[in-house]
Computed example of a mutant assay.
Amino acid sequence: MSSQYLAKQVQDLKPSGIRKFFDLASKMENVVSLGVGEPDFVTPWNVIEASYHSLEQGYTAYTANAGLLELREAISEYLEDYFSVSYDPEEQVLVTVGASQAIDIALRALLNPGDEVIIVEPCFVAYSSAVILAGGVPVTVSATSENAFKVTPEQIEAAVTERTKAIVLCSPNNPTGAVLNAKELADIAEVLCNHDIIAISDEIYAELSYDEKASSLAEIDGMKERTILISGFSKSFAMTGWRLGYAAGPTDIIQAMTKIHQYTIMCAPTMAQHGALEALRNGRDSVDNMTTSYRQRRNFVVKALNEMGLSCHLPGGAFYVFPSIKATGMSSEEFAEKLLAEERVAVVPGNVFGESGEGYIRCSYATSIKQLDEAMKRMSRFVENHIK
């Protein structure tokens, strides 16, 4: 048995619950998928053209390990313009293969065996697994619907122990769409500063904020020197398949992350970096247009879900809704499985995002209004047949 050679922490990892339902749906006909968190927009043409042009000019070799300096300069300018926080592009910015890689190497750069990392749930499925693979111990804190799925400073304070090294925060949040405002972030920052805790701030959905501009944890007083800001181009610029992200933070941490990056990846794809440079320089209008469309879809889906009896708060960002399915009496897994089998609508059960996600489902509205309308009609029929 070859499994005897596998590391225990890898054997114990569960496969992604998101992919499970996506794979099931892909084998069925006439399915409306609200599952995978991926924009339905094609990457803006000017970005694609810039990538083509870079190939035509012969840019097919490695870049610097940290990425094209020109791109790192553009990222630094972008963050200063968007969040009023400045980074040295030569020492404090690292271009990665997606935001996921940035999170992975940030944890590996920070953690010693047994260090604890606070994870706010419901959350992206990779956080706890990445902590475990880095030798750390995930300590989960549940953000509840009663507080619009926003974690409180008191909850974080209660989770801190002498082994706490870091916290992973995501705002706007996947899967709930919750957005922490500047005041809420400042209250959390006070706890982190008091306990000397490093923050890994996943801000991949920052541009997709609908009711107010998203704030960055790094722009809060006292937090820039203890925050690793993680972001990328997948969501806001519709570049998921390009696999390009970045990390910005204190020099010593970014340089440590770069060492891991250079031994495992070498550098992010050169043609993708040229495309990202064009996105930052001339892609704001495309982001604004996509955000306007997402806002309309969000409002449509939230209204439809509440009308059919699935209580759903209005998310402030990202492109997900996280309705309660408790009125049906089903578990999240049962609801998702039956909905797919009976009505051919794919959603993600909330429990895959942590125990506190039980009783909810995640629906992505990153698809056309026509598809969303069909999905809501099918879900309404399903709920009418099953609600108690």
Rank of each mutant, 00 (worst) to 15 (best):
V120I: 13
A109W: 03
V168N: 03
T328N: 12
E212N: 06
A327Q: 12
Q57Y: 10
A256I: 09
L79N: 05
A279E: 01
A341V: 10
Y205S: 00
S364K: 01
Q262N: 11
S231I: 09
E219K: 00
E343K: 09
D211N: 15
I220L: 08
T264Q: 14
E358K: 10
A158P: 02
E337Q: 14
Y263D: 10
V179S: 14
G357I: 05
I260P: 01
D40E: 08
L110S: 00
G37C: 04
S86L: 03
G316H: 02
S3L: 02
P113Y: 07
S215P: 06
N351D: 15
G309D: 04
K183N: 11
Q262P: 07
E90P: 06
V117S: 00
R298I: 08
Y5P: 09
A327L: 09
E184P: 08
M290W: 12
L79V: 05
L24H: 07
M239Q: 09
Y365H: 01
G232T: 15
V321T: 11
F237A: 04
E384T: 11
N46F: 08
V85Q: 03
A272R: 10
Q92K: 07
V117I: 01
G241K: 14
K20R: 13
L69D: 04
A148L: 14
G249S: 11
P138Y: 14
F335D: 07
S209D: 02
A366H: 01
R284P: 01
R381M: 09
S16M: 12
V168C: 05
L94E: 01
E116G: 08
L24I: 10
H313G: 08
R163D: 04
K388T: 10
K235T: 12
K20A: 13
G357L: 07
I204V: 15
L68T: 06
F41W: 09
V120L: 06
A346Q: 14
T164L: 02
T176K: 06
G309T: 02
S324T: 03
H195G: 05
I230F: 04
H261E: 01
R344M: 13
E29K: 15
S368K: 07
T63L: 09
I253G: 05
A247H: 02
C193Q: 03
G232I: 15
P15V: 13
E91D: 11
P89I: 04
R284C: 01
T96N: 15
V301H: 05
A189W: 03
A318N: 11
R19F: 13
T96H: 14
L69Y: 07
